[in-house]
Design a protein around this nucleic acid. Sequence first.
DNA 1: GGCTCGATCTTTTTT
DNA 2: AGATCGAGCC
Length: 753
Amino acid sequence: MTTLLLETLNPAQQLAVQAIDGPVLVLAGPGSGKTRVLTHRVAYLIDVVGIDPFNLLAVTFTNKAAREMKVRLEELIGVDRAAAPAIGTFHSLCVRFLRRDIVHLGRERDFAIYDADDQQRLMRRVLRDLKLDEKQYPPRAIHARISSAKNELVGPQEYARLNRASYYDEIVVRCYERYQALLRENNALDFDDLLFETVTLFRQHATVLEKYQQRYIYLMVDEYQDTNRAQYVLVRDLAARRRNLFAVGDNDQSIYAWRGADIRNILRFEEDYPDAQVVLLEQNYRSTQSILDVAQALIQSGMNRKHAKNLWTENAAGVEVSLHEGYDEHEEAGWVADEIARLRERDSFRLADCAIMYRTNAQSRVVEEALQRRGLPYQIVGGTRFYERKEIKDLLCYLRLIHNPYDSISLERILNVPVRGIGARTEEMLLRWANEMGVPVYQALQELAADSETHPFNARTRNALLAFYDVLSGMIVMRNQCTLLTLLEAILERLTFREALVHEYGPDEADERWRNVQQLANMASDFVNMPYEDQLPAFLENVALIADVDSIDQDADKVTCITLHQAKGLEYPVVFLIGLEEGLLPHSRSIDERDKLEEERRLLYVGSTRARQRLYLLYAFKRTSFGRTNNSTPSRFLASIPPDLIKQSARRQQAERPPHGESTTTRQPVRTQSTLSGTSGRTANQGRQRTNPEPTEIRFLPGQQVRHALFGAGEVVSSKLIDGDEEVTVNFATRGQKRLLASFAHLEKISPE
DNA sequence: GGCTCGATCTTTTTT
DNA sequence: AGATCGAGCC
């Protein structure tokens, strides 16, 4: 078995698998078989070293990755033993810990998990409670602050301590406090709490932490470069006793800084664990040489690469990477769809072999249209998620409420769904009444049902409320006496849900939505083998933690449309990267900060290394966004690719040139890399132009007061020339310190000079 | 209490 | 361009 396990691995992989004791850092380039290494290491620990599977913990980035790991493990060591190791995402593992031990924090184990939509609603409730204007204090923005604070393990008090400066921050603190209080009242945790509370649990209850430290002798963490502070501390604490931490990652694929991921976690590994063994996986098994060359060119033009890897492959050169300019986003998508059809007919690729990747979800719409028009089956990952469809979310709220009646956010959502004559005023009255009595809304309804004398409602309103309460309380009685499916069917029947759909949407749309409901019922039936009382909580947890990528259908022969972020960790024989334009990739929001810009570059790197055999790069000559059409500039990153590595596809002579009136003479010649090269100013469009030619000298000196369109006023801390541009570090009064590229940031000098 | 119309915003990226 | 939200109307 030993030999069998190891002989399919290359020397570096073997080294990683056999590095058992102490901290190990595996720097694994794309396609270098890191999933193989992880899986084989678990198998090796169990089979060869003789570790009890019960003592292993592996953290993956997605549930899908966890599933795949379990499947592969079963193949290696058999079903029985493969079931035992704890394998899952940070969030699902934390839920597991918290269900068991959150009582130590004085909370209940059947807490609800709030998703983005719930968080939004809760935030609005907070603003209403605090009488704050949503215009002045956008719920999203406030919540974003709270969320990143939690990811940094900063609670309300500490946030207040760290941010004394502005009034805005004071508001954030008040909202943060109220937000947490409401979560507690509703017996709910949001996504960020799952991590935060687990860390808190471990910090405050040494015995609990010790229990897990004892149990999990070997820890493995995938995608270590994308861990945030909370995750980092969690891992550090869990590993503190045994120090058997096996971290796998690739700093070149770090693309989640915007949600708190800190690339320094991986860069610091050797400082955190000076005795760490470091293994480099540089052989790529996935891509052709041509694809790898392009990917390497892209990433090597980046700045500040630590742990630079040199990927190589024994794979054949394969087909050249191709670059194509579409006239607009429609032609771009059309070209892709046509090419997919050709690949299927001429080169016998399947549709499932092809993936179309883009920076923003909004781009998927046009792609969808193009595929639809040609009758090519496709699946769009993300976008409007199944669980976020209204009819589904409504039903889920019923289920959540049945499980946890204190969840007032869910209650408010469905109080008048389907319409039963409970309007905003009644709702507000009910909430105020409950508030006055100091009880959860559900309990207020109980009071009302018990014929309380003091309620403020008239007879008609009271009846409407009682109708709602009857449904709910009836279901709560049923909760543990039947299967989840039966429960769901009972809800549908009690609510005459289908009829309500017809009433609200008309017969056609109702049909479509009813099919979604049936699909939900289908999913509910997956849980029939559990004890009755476990089915509902298990289902709800599953729903809350499932990610879009987790539900990619690999069996169907469909084209996959997916964002670059979600594509991390996946691979496809054929990959199309579309919208490679300034403002889109790099995204306009990331354009004037060095670190953000570098992350965009890595995003492109991640995208191109998903491809096994064919890689297509596309951009459009002009693009409509926000209802406005603008000429576009090819992404600066394309300039990093030496021209002999790409085949510029000949532009076809289309019949559909721009409609009359608009002359084609302004059209740019095809911009190959020779014309794309360097940072020299191009005048491809009238829209975004660089304000100054190549800077050759420092224009901003420390102490200079400047103004930025977005960040406001600030003071220059330092400035240096890098790569033909001036990088200015500015300390903004309200936004803190930022590094900006002078040529893009449009910094305005304000006195004193 | 629900409807229609116009104004306003939207698009980063997500567990 | 499309969705969402608020104001004013029935």
